[in-house]
Amino acid sequence: MGVLYLAKRLGWMLFILFGSTVVIFLVIHVIPGDPARAMLGPQGTPEAVETLRRELGLNDPLWQQYLIWVGRALTGNLGHSILLSKSVLELLGERVTTTLLLSLYALILAVLIALPISVMSATRRNTIGDHVGRLVVLIGLAMPSFWFGLMLMLLFSVRLGWLPVFGYVSPLDDLGQHFSHMVLPAVALGSGYAAMIMETTRNSLVDVLNQDYIRTARAGGLAERLVLWKYAMRNALIPTVTVIGIQIGYLMSGAIVIENLFAIPGIGRLMVNAVLSRDYPVVQGTMLTVVFVFAFANLCVDLLCAAIDPRTARE
């Protein structure tokens, strides 16, 4: 993997981050309506609105407001929450690990479930197992994750009493409790994600298994196990890794609802509460964090793909 490729991907990530700051800024500032008025609500007197407008710099030209905002964000100053009397950075710092852990567990679970099933599906095409596997994929894609979470909660927490109903325990306080609180949210969040990984892996593996070099490997008398895991998987995994990366966005969308369902204090819950109370600095901060995580994840995926198949880096 060349330095040039790395530099290119880094440059692309910086461009995306720059673009997304423009979008986040414009969403709040250009859409009709006065943020100051909206933040103060109907009780806000015209004087109070004017004061807040001046405080937020809303009377300056737009480009100047943008530069000031980005400049501050770069130094870690994302403003203060209007509602929670804390700095936005502090609020994000308290919550970002929780969301990252939840997403990580969901990702690991999804991959562990998806890979064996898709390999089974692809190698035994059009058998009962394959049909069941594909049905599971469809249901996984169609099922709203928050509803699946609710059903898991109903069964495992309420009816059987095996797991806590909701809440969160930090891994630093009690690791066992941490996991028992995270199992159901991670399964609920990972289900749709697993379905996407399954669909992609099965299809790409079917494609690869039909290629000439696989036929040659088989004709040469290589054991089927070796053909599948050493030669077919390496090529088949590239779309899988790509979909895992792209759909991290899906995972983060899902985390918003799942955190709200299970009362997990993460970025998603923070964002929904900020939107409900029109706490704009927090809304901007959460959007920025999510985009950053997403862009960074995609950078990692690009590099991983280049490591698996050096040809992708040369294109």
């Binding site: 461009f15 995306i16 981050l17 673009g19 997304s20 423009v22 979008v23 986040i24 969403v27 709040i28 859409i31 309506g33 943020p35 909206a38 966005g249 899906y250 983060m252 969308s253 899902g254 918003i256 609802v257 964002m271 929904v272 900020a274 939107v275 029109r278 704009y280 809304v283 959460t286 959007m287 999510v290 985009v291 997403f294 862009a295």
Partner: peptide, 23 residues
């Protein structure tokens, strides 16, 4: 490039950002 930037936001995150302003 504009589409790429928009797609840097997970669907629901972008939607929520807009709803924050639109109500």
């Amino acid at each position: 490039r504009a589409a790429d930037v928009m797609m840097a936001f997970p669907d629901l995150v972008l939607a929520l950002g807009l709803i924050a302003v639109l109500g």
